[in-house]
Simulated scan of single mutants.
Amino acid sequence: MSILVPVLLTLLALSGSQGHTAALLQTSKLLKESIRLLSHLLRSEVSCDKMNVTNIFAGDKEDDNIEILCKASTVAWEGRSCHRPLEGLYLNLVEVVQRKSTVLQAPCPVAAANTTSLHDFLMNLDRVLQRLVKD
């Protein structure tokens, strides 16, 4: 009976850490799927690639990665009429933000001060996602 308590505590601790590992793996899968979608979007040529979207990458670089992804979800949602796969990207980004932050609710509001082309936005987002997958 005295061995039972440590064994149960060990099993409990292991089951809790597996949930965290599973969440990390799921987030990694979402990021990789988003990179795949971005790759597809960047290869396709459509006339609206030059359409202006909010440049969430301009200005001060104080935003953390999750806040950038939250803002990116907003831009992806707004640009979905141009590229249908942006809706999938939007859903992936919202899911990552919900998993990583209890404070942010995607899509996040973005200031419409600076703009960039949709193509440039997608390239910048791809760089951010690549960096997050490596980390």
Rank of each mutant, 00 (worst) to 15 (best):
A13K: 13
R43Q: 06
M123C: 07
Q98H: 15
T116V: 13
L4H: 09
E62V: 07
V103C: 07
L104S: 09
L8R: 10
L14H: 04
G88V: 04
A106G: 06
L37W: 02
R80K: 15
D64H: 08
A13L: 15
E95P: 03
A22P: 01
A13P: 04
S101K: 05
G19P: 01
D63F: 08
P6W: 13
Q18P: 06
I66Y: 03
R80V: 02
P6Q: 08
Q98A: 15
V94N: 02
I35K: 04
S44H: 04
D126I: 00
C108T: 00
H119F: 10
E45I: 08
S81R: 11
E45W: 11
L118R: 07
A23G: 10
G19Y: 11
E78G: 03
L12M: 12
S2Y: 02
P85M: 09
E33Y: 07
K61F: 12
S28T: 14
S81I: 14
D126Q: 15
E45H: 10
A106T: 07
R43T: 05
L30C: 05
L4C: 10
L93T: 01
L104E: 02
F57M: 13
H20R: 14
H83M: 14
T74L: 03
H119V: 04
S34E: 01
E45T: 12
R99E: 09
H40W: 14
L9R: 09
T74W: 03
D49W: 04
E87G: 10
G79R: 04
P6I: 08
L42T: 02
E78P: 01
T116L: 06
E67T: 13
Q18E: 14
D126N: 06
Q105R: 09
K50D: 05
W77C: 03
S2P: 03
A72V: 02
A106H: 06
I66M: 02
N124M: 04
Q18L: 12
T54L: 03
G16S: 11
L9H: 08
V53G: 05
L118P: 01
N52Q: 15
I35S: 01
L89M: 06
